[in-house]
Every structure is written in structure tokens, then in C-alpha cells.
Amino acid sequence: MRTPDNWDLLVNRSGTGDFELRPAPDRPLGPGEIRLAVEKFGLSMNNVTYARLGDSALPFWNAFPAPEGYGRVPVWGFAHVEESRRPGIAAGRRYFGYLPMSSGFTLSAEPAGHGLLDTSGVRDFLHVWYRTYRNAPAEDELDDRRALLWPLFPASAVLNDYLRRTGAHGADTVVVTSASSKTAIGMAELLAGNGRFRTVGVTADKPFAAALNRYDEVVSYDELDALAGGGGSAVLVDFTGDAKRLAALYDVLAGRLVYTALVGYTHPDARLEPPELPGPEPEIFFTPAYEEETARAEGPAAYRRRYAAAEERFVRGSAEWLRMSAGTGPDAAAAVFRSLLAGEPGPSAGHVLRP
């Protein structure tokens, strides 16, 4: 079957990873609307999380409506304005932001700060962070890495700021699950050499995480007993969202834990709601809210400069450990998503897709 020029890639919401390609609806733009043509987007466990939690209290399936029983997986990537009926937003302008897994889409928009703001009513339920599209530079040799890492690094940076500002709640150890994930790596890179607390990475791929030299210590999930009996207090930063792994860590860190942040949901059994644990009660760490707090305290311009410099270092430095691969077309996108759903790609793999 020939791929239509304009298409939507729909996934069966049953969680089987079955995709269906359909022609995208075509209609004239209304006043205040723009049409974005998708150039490329990254695919990672972050996008699998959007699908797994699509019907949760954060209903990601509602961001880009689809026919009954199907969903359009949200992704992050680059797009340019193909057509505009919004004064102040010119055709040809390039942006980075929240997109459907489609060849393009139409939205209501208005110029805002350093980019544009999606004002479409259907996405009003999303935090403004998801509806803001930043001005994007022309494509260069780092473009694919940016497409993959730009949406992941905010949590890395904000966690670093939070832990440094709070002194890790007085703890001398920060334990990080899913330590081979890209967001965890970014955070560990920023925390390295902080001089106040050590970082311990917990991962299913110990050789990879240890070779990064970003953590003071790395243990596998089979070695959690190595964390028991140590002195001093600890903070837990969890990227798995898995109740069993959290319970096991609470057990080995009993009496030492002073704070737990729930940040990610990389495990297939992850749930948005925090599990019942003996204390401290886990806190869902919502990155946009903490970022706003940091920017207000530091000043928006100063924060943006500092953040941009750290982001660029992380993107460039990822060449040491992240091997990028590129694909084209909806079939390639579906294949990568299914492989992520099955947990197949290793932590050193990065995927970027073009329509």
C-alpha cells in the first residue's frame, strides 16, 4: 500500500503495539490556525510511557484525538510551519515541540516569548510546558540528538537544581533507579562532583552504567542488599514507577530514607499513583512545576542561559555513549515503537524518525 502524503499513525490502545496507517483529514485552515509539517521526532521510553499512561489522570491519549479504540502517540520533535493564517507566525518558521506521530497537524497558535503557544482547546488540559513550541535552529550535525534528548533533559536539569538547592534533604547518598535511562544519565552528569552527596545508580545494565563514570557507585537490581546497613541518610529518585522495585528499595534502605521522588515510569508494570510504602511517602516530581519555581527564583533570562548551556553540553557529550539511528516512514516508526514496548533496544541506542 502506498503511503499517503498526509498520514496519521494510529496505535491500538489495547497495548498490543498494533498500528494502523490512515490518511490524515484535510481541511482548509481557519482564522488563527497554522499547519505544522513534521520533520523528525525522537522515540524513547518516554513515548512508551505516554501510551501506557494514556488513560490515567494524565490522559495523554486526549492530546491528539483519534478514532475510538485507537490513539496517536505523542512525540517531541522538529516541525516547520507549512501554512499559516495567524499573523506573526510565518510559513517556513521552524519549531521544536509536542507532536503527534503523524506527517503533520493543524493547531490554533499565537506567538509567545521564544516561540509559539498552542491555544487549541482540545489540549487545554495540558500544562503550558507541553503547549509551548520553542524557536529551533537550522538543522545541523546535532539535530537528531536534540530531537531525542531535548524533551528528556528538563527533568535531569530540574532534579539537579532541586537536589542541590535542598542539599538532598540533608542526605549523603542519592539512589537513582533506571540509572541507564537517558534522563537519569543527564541528572547524574550534572550532579557529578557536587561535593555534598554521592550518587548510586541502580540498573539492569550495570556494565553500561558503570562505564559512564557518572555515578559514584553502580549496583544491579539483583545486588540491592549491597545498599543495606550503610550509614547516613538517603534520597531515592525513581524512574521505574514499579511498586515491587520501590518496595525492595524501601526495605534495604529502611531507616535511612528521608525523601523519595517519583520521576519516570520505565517499567512495564509502572503506575502513576504512588504505592503505599512505610515512609517517607513518595512524591510525584512534576518537572514543569519545579522548573517554574527555579526560573522565578533565579530570573527567567538567567535561568534560560544557564539551562541552554547545560543542555548543549549534554547533547554534545552524548556522543560518548549514545549511538543514533534514523528511520523514515510510518512503518519504521511503528517498528521502533514496538521494539521499545518490548524493552529490546539497549540504553546506548537512540532513535529518530522522519515522516
Rank of each mutant, 00 (worst) to 15 (best):
P4D: 11
D5Q: 06
W7C: 01
N12Q: 14
P23A: 15
A24M: 08
P25L: 07
G32D: 04
V38W: 04
M45F: 15
N47E: 15
V48E: 09
L53Q: 12
F60S: 05
F60Y: 15
A63R: 05
P67G: 07
G69A: 08
R72V: 04
A79T: 05
P87K: 07
F96R: 01
S108H: 14
E110A: 14
E110D: 09
H114M: 12
G115M: 05
D118K: 04
G121H: 08
G121I: 01
V122D: 13
P137F: 09
E141M: 06
R146G: 03
L148V: 05
L152F: 03
F153K: 02
S156F: 02
T166A: 07
G170T: 02
S178T: 15
S181P: 05
T183P: 01
A188K: 00
G193N: 07
R196K: 10
V200P: 03
G201A: 08
A210G: 11
Y221Q: 09
E223C: 09
E223K: 12
E223H: 13
G231W: 02
G232M: 10
V235Y: 07
F239S: 05
R245N: 07
A248D: 11
L249F: 10
L257S: 09
Y265H: 11
A270C: 12
E273L: 14
P275E: 09
E281I: 11
F285E: 06
T287K: 09
A289E: 15
A301L: 10
Y303R: 12
R306W: 05
A309Y: 10
A319Y: 06
A319Q: 12
R323D: 14
A333H: 03
L341D: 00
A349E: 14
